[in-house]
Simulated scan of single mutants.
Amino acid sequence: DVAYGVYAYDVTDLIKKKENTAKVIRKYPFKSSEIGKVFSSSVSGVGLLVITEDSKDSLIKYWINEGADILWSDSEKTGLSPDECITYAPFYGEVDTDMVKATLWTVVPYGGEGRKGQGLNTLYFNSKKWDGFVKEYFGNSRVAISEKEIKNHLRHKNNIAKIQDRGDFMLAANAFLILKYPPDLTVVKLETPYGAVIGKQYIINATIKNIAKGNAGDFNVTFYSADEHRETVSINRLSADEVIKVNFTWNSPKTIGVVEKISVEVDPENTIEEWNEDNNIKTEYITIMEGGFGNESGPRGTGGGKSGGMASSREEITGYLMKGSVFSGEESAGGTSGEFSLLEYLMKAALWIFFGFLLLIGWWREKSA
């Protein structure tokens, strides 16, 4: 039997924002009445566990196991086999295993004490096994600490960790299971025109969504055109599964025929720890055209030349003609008529129908007379 233990104190009312200090003073030696020896008491290490709450941060769930179990497998000194030197740390309850970052921390004073550096110990988490999970102390203490990512080994209910000594000497003190559900920010929709008229102003709309379980706070959404930064909007908070819309003003370039790259990126500075950092940007491409659509005016011509009022220059056009299309040799003075306008076509058709109706009425009256 050995005199070891773990002590826990609630220091919530004593905590400071920074520069917290713990001091341990040894006052009395320990004397064994059985063997008549005096032992000096010592503290192998001191830790401060702080749990905070922040509505703008990730959702975090904790399981905390603490205790004091001496594990000492030695056929000569203790007569205990490795199978007899196992301690258990159960984490009861249901677990959401979707979009979670899971970590198992263990705190083992004197881990590796018997044969330091050989790692004669084993850590289990459900079906996963790590041999030699501690081999040396942390800093100047006599405490060994391990951190394991166990996302792929989580169960939906009642997870369990086991610490086994296989020839070392250790005190199993703490096992922490920490499940972190970070936010995941993404641009789910980017609304842009398919084509844009040269030198015109447009509104670009972007829909941002947090598709994960954790909240996100204080991040930026940035708008780029032609890979150059144009505008940034700051977002104070976006809760889990929340959607927000932002818009930017874009002036189309004054060059015909170019294809403009439009991008919106959420959290470009990577200030938010996210589940997926590769889905933060969305890109669309806009073709810059000479004229407008529908009833917008087309480009003006260059008529008025010396050759009988014909245009003074020609443009080479590459493409396909529909069957039955008529292509004139030159443009007439005064410019082209622009692109097809449905409104103009309907107005002209209505006028022709109206004039035809008047002629029909006149003919009918003359015949009746």
Score class of each variant (00 low, 15 high):
Ile198Asn: 01
Ala216Phe: 11
Lys101Thr: 13
Asp131Arg: 13
Pro82Asp: 00
Leu321Gln: 06
Trp63Met: 08
Ser252Arg: 02
Arg230Tyr: 01
Asp96Asn: 13
Phe248Thr: 07
Gly67Leu: 09
Phe327Cys: 14
Phe248Met: 13
Lys200Pro: 07
Ile235Gln: 00
Thr52Gln: 02
Gly36Ala: 00
Ser40Cys: 02
Leu120Gly: 08
Phe248Gln: 02
Leu185Gln: 06
Ser328Val: 12
Val266His: 02
Cys85Ile: 02
Met322Pro: 11
Lys56Trp: 04
Leu351Arg: 12
Arg115Gly: 00
Phe91Ala: 07
Trp72Ile: 15
Ile244Thr: 11
Lys61Phe: 01
Glu331Leu: 14
Tyr137Pro: 06
Ser297Met: 11
Ile203His: 00
Arg166His: 00
Asn247Lys: 09
Asn174Trp: 11
Ile60Gln: 05
Val143Thr: 13
Ser252Trp: 06
Tyr137His: 06
Val43Ile: 15
Val43Glu: 00
Ser58Gly: 09
Asp131Ala: 15
Tyr124Glu: 03
Tyr224Thr: 06
Asn65Asp: 08
Gly298Trp: 02
Val43Asn: 03
Lys189Met: 03
Ala196Lys: 10
Lys209Met: 11
Trp72Ala: 14
Asn210Val: 12
Glu242Thr: 01
Leu71Thr: 14
Ile198Cys: 13
Ser127Phe: 12
Asp168Leu: 10
Val187Gly: 04
Asp69Ile: 13
Ser81Asn: 10
Phe125Pro: 05
Gly214Lys: 09
Ser146Val: 11
Glu147Met: 15
Ile281Gln: 03
Thr192Asn: 03
Trp72Met: 14
Asn126Arg: 07
Lys129Leu: 09
Thr302Glu: 00
Gly47Thr: 11
Ile35Glu: 01
Lys323Met: 12
Ser307Leu: 15
Arg166Leu: 03
